[in-house]
Amino acid sequence: MQFISLLLIRLIQTIFVIWVVVTIVFVVARIFGNPEAALLPPFDTTEADYEKVRERLGIDKPLYTQYGIFLKDAVQGDLGYSFIRAGSAIDIVADKILPTVKLTAAGLVVAIGLGIPLGILAALTRGSPYDWLARLIAVFGQATPSFWLGLMLIFFLAVRVDWFPTAGAEGFRALVLPAVSLGLLSAAGFMRLTRSGMIDVMNTDFIRTARAKGLNERTVIVRHALRHAMIPVATILGLELGTLIAGSVIIEVVFSWPGLGRLMIESILKDDFPTVQAGVAVIAFSIAMGNLLVDISYRFIDPRIQAAEL
């Protein structure tokens, strides 16, 4: 029961954050943006033409009136129509969610699939060449700007040898390079944290007890040590999810991936206010939900954590 009420509080907080974020976007866009200029030819346009376009887009009224109308429509689930594309902002954004989810999930798979095993290996073979190699990968992964990594991968693996397509989202092979470019930074974080966590836990008493009981090494590592080392990893999972969602924006631009991030950048540069607002709301919502899921999953990894700390 307490758990449910805490979930409700978190949900209300999330809605509040989204409202603040969208309001900031609404105000900033309308103060500085100039969508009518993008819709009309630059010559032979009279002030009356601009006026007509502004009226059609609904941006001729004072800011607070526009905001009132926006809020009234928003609570009914209507975020307006795109200024430059056919259709409502929500439909346009919804179309792009799946490719971005696919890319982010693939990035997360790379981050976890590379980071955690490498971290375990490095911790168990501390000081060995494996350890050095894993740490080298982590240092490079952390320092290489993702867009530069993406371009290098395109250069070597899509241009020099034709293993992967240079752009687009057709099929599984197209997913590989973007996912690696996106996931490597987070993989480095997971690797470092797993490594230090495993090293710490392997020196504790309960590992010695587990060994003394005669458990085989595999059980000791997987059932006892790893589970313990995963607690801090789960903590940064939420943070890394945010990093991945934000990072996907620039990766989508590099690989011409038809997702939400590229849509956002294009819509911002073309002053398509409704699409930007809807997209930012979706991104903020997904970051918040990611954090919430991680907090809930805590309770299963570490039962010592009580609902009150959620």
């Binding site: 943006g33 956002m264 002053d271």
Partner: peptide, 20 residues
């Protein structure tokens, strides 16, 4: 601070960059 850290920073930066 929490609200700001929950923002998708890069989208916001592009928005501000385009605006300013």
């Amino acid at each position: 601070v929490d609200v700001q850290l929950a923002l998708p920073a890069i989208v916001f930066a592009v928005l501000l960059g385009a605006a300013l």
